[in-house]
């Protein structure tokens, strides 16, 4: 269970990017984080695994308080938090397999990772994850030979290799076409279900989010302005999050159309 209490963040002398964020994510729940660019979504998930340091507040994963850990200790905890990135963030000049195995780095001493002497169990698991994401035939290709969707699958396999308790997903579909986007979201969803993993997914595409997540948190100007089931995401709420717009076109449910014209 992830518990965030009164999280605040500002960069140096800039404005507050996150103002007093609190919420909990129970095990196995998939949370979609929506909101306009600059609402603080990216900062929020990067605070969780401390890629950036929060200014104030508590972040607790199970019984560990992440926000107060020293730089050395946070590395141990990062192993349990898988992260998937917008531009895949693979190391392009390494092989697909090395990219997947890099998910094990936090568990290995330097010399083993340097010599690529991974434990047999790790290699076995890595093959299994590659099979799961459908890339078993590409294991020894260089990552830059793959297409966008395939690269994102490698990114997912890398996060899985960490054997995580929580997934942080940053705009997984922003660089993909609509069909591939749905495939990727479906893959993330089904993996979370299989392993009863909880996940926080930053996502721009509201209909896509509503289709694949259990719960939606709307962020606006660094504050939570909505927290509830996807079905509760009405036009009013969207207006509160994004500002005025004709929302009828983004609604996936035909039934909701009768709510009439947006203001």
């Amino acid at each position: 269970m992830l518990k965030i209490e009164h999280l605040k963040k500002r960069y140096k002398t800039g404005p507050w990017v996150l103002k007093d964020i609190s919420f909990e994510v129970p095990d196995g729940e998939i949370v979609g984080l929506i909101g306009p660019s600059g609402a603080g979504k990216s900062s929020l998930i990067r605070c969780v695994n401390r890629l950036i340091d929060p200014t104030d507040g508590n972040i607790q994963l199970d019984d560990v308080n992440l926000s107060s850990l020293s730089a050395g200790k946070i590395r141990e905890q990062r192993r349990h938090i898988g992260m998937i990135f917008q531009e895949y963030a693979l190391v392009e000049r390494l092989s697909v397999m090395e990219n997947v195995l890099s998910g094990r780095l936090g568990y290995l001493p330097f010399w083993r990772s340097f010599l690529r002497r991974y434990p047999e169990q790790d290699i076995d698991n890595a093959f299994e994850y590659l099979e799961r994401v459908g890339l078993i035939d590409h294991a020894n290709k260089r990552a830059d030979e793959l297409s966008g969707g395939q690269r994102q699958r490698v990114g997912i396999a890398r996060a899985l290799a960490q054997d995580p308790r929580l997934l942080l997903v940053d705009e997984p579909t922003a660089s993909l076409d609509p069909k591939t986007s749905r495939q990727i979201m479906r893959l993330i969803q089904s993996i979370c279900r299989e392993k009863s993993l909880s996940a926080i997914i930053n996502i721009h595409d509201v209909p896509l989010a509503m289709q694949f997540v259990d719960r939606i948190i709307g962020l606006q100007g660094g504050e939570i302005v909505f927290d509830g089931k996807p079905e509760a995401l009405t036009e009013d709420v969207l207006t509160r999050i994004y500002g005025d717009e004709d929302w009828t076109s983004v609604k996936p449910d035909e039934d909701d159309l009768e709510n009439g014209e947006a203001a």
Partner: peptide
């Protein structure tokens, strides 16, 4: 158990 060896591209 499957084995894996780092591929060399150069």
């Amino acid at each position: 158990m499957r084995t894996w060896q780092r591929p060399h591209y150069l």
